[in-house]
Amino acid sequence: MNRPRLGFQIPCRLPASRIAALARGAERAGFDQVWLVEDCFFAGGIAASATALAATERIGVGIGILPAVARNAAFTAMEVAALAEAHPGRFTAGLGHGMREWMRQIGAAPASPLTALAEHLDAVRRLLAGETVTADGRYVRLDGVRLEFPPEVPPPVVAGVRGPRSLEVSGRHADGTVLAEPVTPAYLASARASIARGRVGLDRPHTITAYTLFHADDDLDRARDAMRPALAGPVADPAWAAHLADVDLGPRSEEITALPEAERAAALPADWIDRLSACGPPERCLERVRETHAAGADTVVLCPVGEPEEQLARAAALPALLTG
């Protein structure tokens, strides 16, 4: 495995005016990457990434993810190429399905999300590589399109996906996979197996980036309490089913997930919180990061719960400790 890398996520639910300072802070602390999220209807992912790249000098910047179907593949490639050419070797472009309800809301929900994602990944990767692309797919139709300024160093194009079939698409059509939180060792093993099925016959590298909910506090109980609201909704969300399918949460799992959300937050067992997040004193959070790396993640991205500036300050020592 490559040297373990550590990233820090800048939450989408922040005004864009706070992106630059957070990106600079992550760079000063020695993080390898900063990741941004394009959720409806916050700051656009390309603009947010450009802000982070322009405010920093060395740190990698990833967007995880851009909903593939929200943009024409050629225009996605144009935007990504501009950032990659201006900041060579520093940008990673993530594409994914996008949340189904949001895609319906904007009139862009495809009948076949798997086909749509595969076609977009292929077209964007080929355009960034400088190819002239003609495609007559179900969702991507291009007629002799070639970028005028393909980047000298084509950036990785990764897929942000969850379930087994989507992970196979990522293995076949992307340069890497971004796994949304929570990423337990059991889920990571299952995801890697699905990705491997898609990679049969391929020999190009494929990186895995694991998002991890994070709250550092020297008081473990206080850290767990801060994490409870962030976990209470998702543990009962069908979208999390893939993450929890291989995780044994014990005999009370159905009883707890059936509670109203506020009661569910209070009832979450401490071991659930510990298994589904990195929380507590920084050195304890570091153990979780190392565990995730050991299970097969190339990069672990800390997704702060609470004020991101405060959590970044508490995490500032982790990059040096991880590689020291």
Score class of each variant (00 low, 15 high):
residue 116 A to R: 14
residue 173 H to Q: 13
residue 119 E to N: 08
residue 139 Y to H: 05
residue 130 G to L: 03
residue 154 P to L: 01
residue 139 Y to A: 10
residue 138 R to K: 15
residue 160 G to Y: 06
residue 152 E to W: 13
residue 143 D to P: 02
residue 133 V to I: 13
residue 175 D to C: 05
residue 190 S to Q: 12
residue 183 V to A: 06
residue 137 G to H: 07
residue 161 V to P: 01
residue 135 A to T: 13
residue 163 G to T: 15
residue 146 R to F: 11
residue 155 P to W: 00
residue 149 F to D: 07
residue 139 Y to W: 12
residue 137 G to S: 04
residue 129 A to L: 01
residue 128 L to H: 02
residue 142 L to G: 12
residue 189 A to C: 13
residue 134 T to C: 13
residue 177 T to Y: 00
residue 177 T to S: 04
residue 131 E to V: 11
residue 186 A to T: 13
residue 132 T to H: 07
residue 155 P to N: 04
residue 159 A to E: 05
residue 168 E to V: 10
residue 176 G to M: 04
residue 133 V to N: 10
residue 154 P to R: 01
residue 183 V to K: 04
residue 143 D to F: 12
residue 126 R to T: 10
residue 179 L to R: 08
residue 126 R to Q: 03
residue 187 Y to F: 14
residue 122 D to H: 14
residue 157 V to A: 00
residue 171 G to P: 06
residue 184 T to W: 03
residue 133 V to K: 08
residue 169 V to G: 14
residue 137 G to Q: 14
residue 187 Y to V: 11
residue 156 P to S: 02
residue 132 T to S: 02
residue 146 R to M: 12
residue 155 P to A: 01
residue 178 V to M: 09
residue 165 R to A: 15
residue 128 L to V: 00
residue 155 P to D: 00
residue 160 G to W: 09
residue 119 E to P: 03
residue 120 H to E: 02
residue 160 G to E: 10
residue 155 P to L: 01
residue 125 R to I: 00
residue 147 L to G: 03
residue 118 A to L: 07
residue 190 S to R: 11
residue 120 H to D: 06
residue 166 S to L: 13
residue 136 D to K: 11
residue 164 P to G: 09
residue 169 V to N: 08
residue 142 L to N: 03
residue 146 R to C: 15
residue 188 L to S: 11
residue 158 V to C: 06
residue 147 L to E: 00
residue 130 G to M: 05
residue 181 E to F: 01
residue 133 V to T: 12
residue 125 R to L: 10
residue 132 T to P: 13
residue 176 G to T: 09
residue 151 P to T: 08
